[in-house]
Amino acid sequence: MTGGTWEREVAENARRLGALRDRLSAQTVREVSRDGTVEVSVSTSGALTGLVLREGRFREPLPVIAAQVMDCVRRAQARIPELMGQAMAETIGPNDPAAQLILAETRERFPEPPQPRDAPPPPPVPQSGPPPARRGQDGDDWDGPEIFERG
């Protein structure tokens, strides 16, 4: 391989990798909970980039909402390898060894989430700890003098 051919191949690979990086940095994956109350967006690096919580017909306890958020994040992250594979095939080519290595690593990092159970999650276990805060006369946690009280 001559010096000019090698340099052109290196430059072309760098251009394709740059195009792949730009494409992936602009993409996000969105998932919504089954009841529509939780919506998440994650970047192709797996980072949570957006969270929307909507009130449903029933007010769910916070542990249930937290579980829904985490389920949506895991399902969104599990779609990242497919998205990356498609982007790699279109920018680098399907047979590039480096792309295959990156894709295998991404599949390991973001595996398919376990299948959801049909049963609802168990109720939260009460935590032991300090007693709940006392409520003042006006309903808040502060039981001292009000700022605007004149004495």
Rank of each mutant, 00 (worst) to 15 (best):
M1V: 07
M1K: 12
G4Q: 12
G4P: 10
T5M: 08
T5H: 08
W6A: 15
W6K: 08
W6R: 15
R8Q: 15
R8A: 15
E9V: 11
V10F: 06
A11Q: 11
A11S: 08
A11Y: 02
N13E: 12
A14Q: 09
A14K: 03
R15H: 11
R21S: 14
D22M: 05
R23P: 09
L24V: 10
A26V: 13
A26L: 11
Q27C: 08
V32R: 00
S33W: 00
S33L: 06
D35H: 03
V40F: 00
V42Y: 02
T44K: 00
S45I: 01
G46Y: 01
T49L: 09
G50Y: 06
L51T: 05
L51G: 02
V52Y: 03
V52I: 12
L53N: 09
L53K: 01
R54W: 09
R57C: 09
E60T: 08
P61D: 14
L62H: 10
V64K: 05
V64Q: 12
I65Q: 12
I65F: 05
A66K: 08
V69P: 02
M70I: 11
C72Y: 08
V73G: 04
R74S: 14
R75Y: 10
R75K: 00
R79A: 15
R79D: 14
E82K: 02
L83R: 01
L83K: 07
M84C: 13
G85K: 05
Q86Y: 10
Q86I: 10
G93Q: 06
P94T: 14
A98R: 04
A98P: 02
E105M: 03
E105G: 07
T106I: 02
E108R: 01
R109A: 10
P114H: 01
P114N: 07
P116Q: 00
P116K: 00
A119T: 15
P122Q: 05
P123W: 00
V125I: 10
P126L: 05
Q127W: 06
Q127D: 12
S128E: 13
G129M: 02
P132R: 09
P132V: 05
R135Q: 14
G136H: 03
D138A: 07
G139K: 02
W142I: 10
D143Q: 09
D143I: 06
P145Q: 15
P145R: 15
E146G: 02
E146F: 00
E149N: 13
R150C: 10
R150K: 10
G151H: 13
G151M: 08
